[in-house]
Structure formats: structure tokens, C-alpha cells
Amino acid sequence: MPKKIIMSIYYSITALRKRLTPACRLLLAAVCALLVVIVFMSINVKASWEFTLTFRGKKLITFLLVAFCISTATLLFQSLSNNRIITPAIMGFDSLYILVQTSLVYVLGSMQYTALNSYLKWVIEISILVIAASYLFQWLFIKKHYNLYLLILIGVVCGVFFHSISALMMRMLDPTEFSVLQDSLFASFNAAQSELLIVSIVALSAIGIFLYRYHHYFDVLALGKPMATNLGVNHSAMTRVCIIVITTLIGLSTALVGPVTFFGLLVVNVAYIVCGSHYHRYLIPMSILCAIILLVGGDVLLQHVLGYDTKLSIIIEFIGGVFFICLILRKKI
């Protein structure tokens, strides 16, 4: 009996998959996301509504921003590299971010650092991060026969490099300066700073406009460099711009909640499966919605259903990581 039920469910899902157009699926996903958000905001309210709304509201905005950043960055990166297994987050951006923070404290001293205007501080840090990371990519782009995997490997090793330099500097700081640094570095979904949220919203709106305007080009880029050049797309210029966008997204996400490596992989691969189309005009929104559902839904599950005290980021990394291994063992790269 159970086998029959399973088979009938399977067949109806398959039949449904054929009927649902990508636009339909997108709508469905949007509805799910909305539901999850509503549940998140209203479930199990123990304190006053005012407090809950502000607290959860801020957390929700952080979730939404991070979902946008990570899913879009990973998707773009994979299209650029024609590879479904890579994620930009392993390229040491988090280490670079920590290095920038640490250097600022080291160079300016704790007094001057805390005296900096918060907006200015975030803009400076993100800008340094993006410029440094872009230079890394651009310098490698100038080499005529660059190999994408080499680029990524260099990024990873640079990550270790930056991390070690930061560790060195941290050891050389005196305890008061170190605690100032630690406050800055400690990031989580609960504790995102308002100024950073606002800077992020502005940056992401600009990126959103860019995505909307150019999403056709991403489809062509995904065909590979020779084909894209043949079709009149300026591959190197487009890639450079995409790299800057990707580094900004990852930089913002790292500043908001710290390093999140495998979540992007998980989300984007789920999106490939449920989207029903490989065009970016459907893929990008779908991966963002999947990310929102997983993040917000995961948090609801964790906090209210399972009652765990674990950090959400750790669980996400764990699941995403296991998923990555299954992905490699099942598919070819």
C-alpha cells in the first residue's frame, strides 16, 4: 500500500512539473517565501509586540539581504565559470574582510577607530574589500591563458595568507585594542548593525538594477567565452563587472553575518532543480526566494520547533557541506 501511495505521489509530481511554467513556479516560491516570513514574524511572541517587531524585523531584513547576496553571488560566479560546484565564498573574502578590519584597528588605534562615523567606516571597509579583491582578479585576468580553477585556488591560498597576517596582527595588539576589534568582528544574524543594513540596502538596490538590466548577458556568458565573443558580447569587460558585483555581494554578506561558505552552493543547486528554466531572468529570483525560504524557515524551525540553541549559520554550513559532498559523488563537475 505505501509503495502505491509513493508511486502515485511521484507520478503526480512529475506530471505537475511538466505543466508548471517557470513563471508559475516563481509565483509559487514567492507565496511560500511570504508565508515563511509571516510565520517568522508572528510565531510564539512572548515579549511585547513593539519589541518583537523591531527585533525580528531587523533580523528579517538581515536574512533577506544575506539571502540576496549569497544566492546571487554564487549564481553569477557559477555562470561565469561554467561550473556547478564552485562557490566564490571559499576564496578567502572573509579573511580579507578580517584583515581589513584588523589593519584599520592596528593602524588607527582603538580610539580613532571607535570615533569613526559608522556609515563611513562600513563604506570604507567594503570599498577596500571590493577594490582589493577586484585587483586580485583583474591582475590574474591580464594573463592570457588564465585557468579559472587556478584563480580560485589562488584566492583560497590568499585567504589563508590574509588570515595568518590578521592572526599575527591580532597577537600584536594590546588587550583593549583587541576587544574593540573583537566587537567589530563578532557578527551574527541577531546582531547586525543598523548602519551596515542601510549601506547594504543602498548597494543591493544598485546591484538589483544592474541585474535587471543585464540578465540577458549572463545567459550568453554561461555559454562559454568563445561562444559569447562570437555573439558580440565583450566577455572580459562583462566578466570584470561581474567580478566586482560578486565581490561586493560577498563582502556585504561577510560584513553582515560572517563567513558562510556552502549555503550558496546549496541554494543555487536547489534553484536549478526547481526553477524549470536556465534563463537568469527566472534563476536569479528563484535562487533568492529559495535562500529566503531556507534561511527564514530554518530559523523558525530551529528556534521554535526544535528548540535548539545552535547558531543557524553553523547548521547551514553543516547541511550545505554534506550536500556538497553528495553533489560531487552523484554528478560530474
Binding site: H216, Y217, D219, L223, L231, V233
Partner: peptide, 10 residues
């Protein structure tokens, strides 16, 4: 996609 130089996505 072969027509991309002309329609740029549309």
C-alpha cells in the same frame, strides 16, 4: 541565442 547580437535578449 544565435540571434542575440540583434535582439540582445528580447
Amino acid at each position: 541565442f544565435g540571434r542575440f547580437p540583434y535582439h540582445q535578449g528580447r
